[in-house]
Design a protein around this nucleic acid. Structure first.
Length: 645
RNA sequence: GGGGUAGUAGUUAAGUUGGUUAUAACGCCGGCCUGUCACGCCGGAGGCCGCGGGUUCGAGUCCCGUCUACCCCGCCA
């Protein structure tokens, strides 16, 4: 081994060799991906991170020409005894053994393999060194495997040898490098913020870290660098970025992990447009570096389109519309009011509440919206009912009122067919553009519920119609800024809570409404959406302590309370805070979209399961009582036996 | 916290109405093979049917519970 590592340095990676390397002596290191023993002739597919090269063990082979670039004097490139020994050793090698190979590159002639980058050549082995044996791998290491993800995660170090994951992690590297390079070139400083920090209530649940030095007290793992990056602005660093791990102790999804990485940015003396320009430049740089798509062709003016939050909710039913396809929702509340319900009892009830002032048009208590399943979708009645059943999981969802539109515009297969007035039916058909054969899906209820149901229905139908793939980008890249959502949200008890967080600046025209009509106050907040996935979000912050106090008051947070929770930030804002704003881009999600991966787990080296468990290492785990008492803790967990107790 | 799907050999799956010794492919082990490249041919080993209980003459199959993973709602930027 010493001879190989010390004297025979690697000359190439396994993906490097090409036809014009023929005749050259080379040294490769790697893993034996496959072995084909023909009896008297053995082939290895030798694999390293750059690719695969075929290595041949042929005891009868003799070089027909002097070898170029011999390695070392007095150490001939071809020694028949050594070649024979290498062949005998190759007979015993198994897949995934780690080996070094010395040999001569030869053109494969008629045996060339066109689907392999190195397929024109092979290495005739003159020497073989086995660095390590390997147990038979628990999972197949082929590019496409059907192993259960549970098994793959348990043997993550094997799974990571597979080409898709090798590619995904390399893409992460390229993404990160491009982001660093671009943001640095734009004058942003890469500064670090604390990971263990002060617990702040509200927002995402924090992971709690007990303090050994402060008995009974706890740190929290940062759910984001939000407060600290604002303090950087207060301190005059002007423009900051960080590629930073964040931690949230919430339930997980395919696009949600307990620890994840953000490209975090904050800037001073900027407005919304300035943030957009920087992020658009960043995204362009990342796409160029990773070769994911030619964005300058798709967005010639190098800007992404913008849509107000309200328009997004109205047309698509959510704040992260997948704009790769149309099939928009139809807002019918006004029409229903105009027709006083049009004979449909459910809608008459809604119309009368608007008429008697129970509901306000500006902030409606209930809405009526529709989605049209085009005849072209060719969905059977059963399939439509199947889709509707899928909406049942949305809490508060009461079901759809469906109507199949006939040749003459009449409705059938509908609970409303008999009661709806002709004029209202015609008006509805016209407003929704419903054509004969289409299925009109009507939903009445609280805006959040109606929108949740219809936006899900829209995506389901889009997928069923093949307008978007079940996962991946499908070759389309639709970016969108969704801007200016409401600052406050009804808390259901006559008060208000912050829709996102309390440090977002209300739009200038709405400052007066903070006290008088909070529900209508919009703010300088923005989300970047790609193909219906929320890539990131940010805001222009509230840098004015006076306005901040008014916002807190509307939220029912007293000065003393605010001081206790956010004291250092409020103090800092009073110490001379510049106008500032920023954004955080979900790096994992971006990597997922760029790579076409179906889940975040495929672009994170060592992900957790939906239960937050690392199947490979077994984290989280019990700790010894002594370790607990050192941090002044005792577990109250009753279920399960603690083997260390 | 709630809903859904799945769990059988190392891996992926089949297993009919509850009925003899639980199948197959890949992988693994042994043998043969000098141009393979998903090499081929011959032979072989390999099972707590997730776990625990129940029904039954008899359970992979039916019932109850439980664990694990995945997808979704709630939650979450």
């Amino acid at each position: 081994m010493a001879r190989f590592i010390d004297e025979l340095r690697r000359t190439h990676y396994c993906g490097d060799l090409r036809a014009d390397d023929a005749g050259r002596e080379v040294v490769l290191y790697g893993w034996v991906a496959r072995r084909r023993d023909l009896g008297g002739l053995i082939f290895f597919d030798l694999r390293d991170r750059e690719g695969i090269t075929q290595v041949v063990f042929d005891p009868g082979f003799r070089p027909d020409a002097p070898v170029r670039e011999p390695l070392g004097e007095g150490d001939p490139a071809w020694d028949e005894d050594r070649v024979a020994a290498a062949y005998r050793q190759a007979e015993r090698v198994r897949r995934e053994w780690v080996v070094g190979v010395r040999g001569i590159v030869r053109h494969r002639g008629g045996n060339a393999k066109s689907d392999l980058a190195t397929g024109d050549v092979e290495v005739m082995a003159s020497e073989l060194e086995v660095f390590n044996r390997a147990e038979t791998p628990a999972i197949s290491l082929e590019e496409v495997i059907d192993s259960d993800e549970e098994t793959r995660l348990r043997y993550r170090y094997l799974d990571l040898r597979r080409l898709p994951l090798q590619r995904a992690l390399r893409l992460r590297h390229e993404l990160n490098q491009a982001a660093r390079h671009y943001l640095s070139s734009q004058g942003a400083l890469e500064l670090e913020t604390p990971i263990i920090c002060k617990y702040t209530p509200g927002g995402a649940r924090n992971f709690i870290v007990p303090s050994r030095l402060s008995p009974g007290k706890f740190y929290a793992l940062a759910e984001s660098p939000q407060l600290f990056k604002q303090l950087f602005m207060v301190s005059g660093f002007d423009k900051y970025f960080q590629i930073v791990k964040c931690f949230r102790d919430e339930d997980l999804r395919l696009d949600r992990q307990p620890e994840f990485t953000q490209i975090d940015i904050e800037m001073s003396f900027v407005n919304q447009d300035d943030v957009f320009r920087l992020v658009e430049g960043l995204v362009f740089a990342i796409f160029e570096a990773t070769g994911a798509a030619d964005l300058p062709t798709l967005y010639p003016d190098r800007c992404f389109p913008r849509m107000s939050f309200q328009e997004s909710e109205r047309r698509f039913g959510n704040d992260k519309p997948d704009t790769r396809f149309a099939l928009e929702l139809h807002e019918l509340t006004d029409l229903v009011i105009e027709h006083e319900g049009g004979g449909i009892p459910l809608m008459e009830a809604v119309a009368s509440k608007f008429a008697n002032g129970s509901y306000r048009r500006e902030v409606p208590g209930e809405v009526v919206k529709a989605f049209v399943i085009p005849a072209a979708a060719k969905l059977s009645r059963k399939q439509v009912e199947e889709l509707e059943k899928g909406l049942k999981e949305i809490s508060g969802f009461a079901g759809l009122g469906r109507a199949k539109v006939g040749e003459d515009g009449t409705w059938s297969q509908s609970p409303f067919a008999k009661v709806v007035t002709d004029t209202f039916r015609s008006a509805l058909n016209a407003a929704t553009g419903a054509e004969p054969g289409d299925v009109l899906c009507l939903s009445v209820g609280k805006p959040a519920v109606v929108n949740a149901a219809l936006s899900k229905l829209r995506l389901d139908v889009g997928r069923k119609m093949g307008l978007i793939p079940a996962s991946g980008h499908g070759g389309k890249w639709e970016f969108l800024w969704v801007v200016n959502p409401p600052l406050f949200e009804d808390d259901g008890e006559g008060g208000f809570v912050a829709a996102h967080h309390a440090f977002t600046r209300p739009i200038d025209d709405h400052l007066d409404l903070v006290e008088t009509d909070p529900a209508r106050v919009l703010c300088y907040r923005y989300d970047l959406v790609l193909n219906g996935v929320e890539l990131g979000g940010g805001s222009i912050r509230l840098h004015d302590p006076e306005v901040q106090r008014r916002v807190f008051r509307t939220l029912g947070i007293e000065d003393a309370q605010a001081q206790a929770q956010f004291g250092f930030l409020l103090d800092a804002l009073r110490s001379g805070a510049p106008p500032h704003g920023g954004i955080a881009i979900g790096m994992d999600r971006l990597a997922m979209l760029l790579s076409g991966a179906a889940t975040l787990r495929d672009v994170i080296p060592f992900p957790k399961t939906n239960q937050g468990i690392d199947l490979m290492s077994g984290a989280p785990d019990h700790v010894l009582p002594a370790q607990l008492s050192e941090v002044y803790l005792r577990s109250t967990a009753s279920e399960g036996s603690d083997p260390t107790a």
